[in-house]
Design a binder for these strands. Structure first.
Length: 328
DNA sequence: CATGTTTCCTGACAGC
DNA sequence: TGCTGTCAGGAAACAT
């Protein structure tokens, strides 16, 4: 399952391989659920754009696209400041803006366009879901089964989105400038302060959240990027039981959890992520953090610290692993 | 708003 | 061998 470290590895790998390339042609599979934006929109936005940069936000891969001014970008949009930079609910707005753009763009193509430096105009968002992969391949390499999108690049290579289980999602959003770039639904685990981290577990009125701490860690609108593996591993290292109420940890426990989470994610990035099922990076290479898992996938096995049998339960609908002795 | 439940989808694996 | 059934799980939609 691609979580923050895996997505970071893939995004960096893809960035190194395709930055600066122009997208010549786009193919999509027609499997509706894979596309959050309409496929036609994705094709229109991506075709002819230049890949400025590929990065990770939460669990989402963000491909920043540049275009030449005077063609696709001409004509002012009227957002009226509706789109705010706080992450949620912006994609629908962007789609609406995009449709306007396209109509204007067509009229303009006939006039002939002014050559100007490329500028940021849109982003291509790729969420890998559970089994999604983003691969950079030679065009001659046979496309894997369950390929749902192919971007043909100027140098002939292809970026391919492959997703057997189809929990992944592709979308595009139009932006005015880099500052309006996709911010994700929550806070970044790698950079959040300890104080802000504690604040996640209080509701709007400052009350203590009653959900299980594990469920809260998985809530992407609080903290984005943490998934099932790293939630379990962080809780194990912090010595906190997954079912504890999120708002009722001690200050020391929040401190340990905050530190453990960063530690676990950072270490996992160093090792190229965890390959528990079929995760591979942009080169098809597996990660190695699974070798350092303390609890995830180890139900019934002895705890590496105290030897007690690791238990597997369900919390927030997710398989959850913990040591009943080390975690209180 | 906070929280819980259901749904999507198919490969892997258990059981017969 | 080959079939059927069950399960996993991120995030959005829906329900409470």
């Amino acid at each position: 399952m691609p979580e923050l470290p895996e997505v970071e590895t893939v995004a960096n790998g893809v960035d190194a391989r395709v930055r600066g390339q122009r997208i010549e042609e786009v193919w999509t599979s027609g499997k509706a659920q894979t596309f959050k934006s309409a496929e036609s929109e994705i094709g229109e936005v991506l075709t002819g754009a230049r890949i400025e940069r590929v990065r990770r936000v939460g669990k989402t891969i963000v491909m920043t696209l540049g275009r030449r001014q005077g063609v696709e970008d001409a004509g002012g949009r009227d957002d009226g400041g509706k789109r705010r930079a706080n992450g949620m609910g912006r994609e629908a707005d962007s789609s609406a803006a995009l449709r306007n753009d396209d109509q204007e763009g067509k009229a303009q193509g006939e006039n002939g366009s002014v050559v100007a430096p490329t500028r940021v105009s849109a982003e291509f968002l790729v969420h890998l879901g559970m089994t999604g992969r983003l691969l950079v391949s030679a065009a001659e390499a046979p496309a894997p089964a369950h390929t749902h999108a192919v971007l043909r690049l100027g140098d002939g290579r292809e970026v391919r989105f492959v997703d057997p289980r189809r929990f992944g999602r592709l979308s595009v959003r139009v932006i005015e400038a880099v500052e309006d770039g996709y911010a994700g639904p929550g806070m970044e685990p790698l950079t959040i302060s300890e104080e802000a981290f504690r604040g996640l577990f209080r509701d709007k009125k400052g009350g203590r959240r009653t959900v299980a701490i594990k469920a809260a860690l998985l809530n992407q609108s609080l903290l984005h990027g943490v998934g099932n593996i790293y939630a379990d591993e962080a809780l194990a290292r912090a010595g906190v039981r997954p079912r504890r109420q999120a708002g009722r940890l001690t200050r020391a426990e929040y401190g340990r959890l905050h530190a453990a989470l960063k530690e676990v994610l950072t270490r996992a990035i160093e090792l190229g992520g965890s390959s528990v099922s079929d995760y591979v990076d942009a080169d098809g290479v597996r990660g190695f953090f699974q070798l350092e898992h303390r609890v995830y996938g180890r139900g019934g096995e002895p705890c590496r610290v105290c030897g007690t049998e690791i238990r597997k339960i369900v919390v927030g609908g997710r398989g959850t692993h913990f040591c009943p002795r080390c975690q209180r």
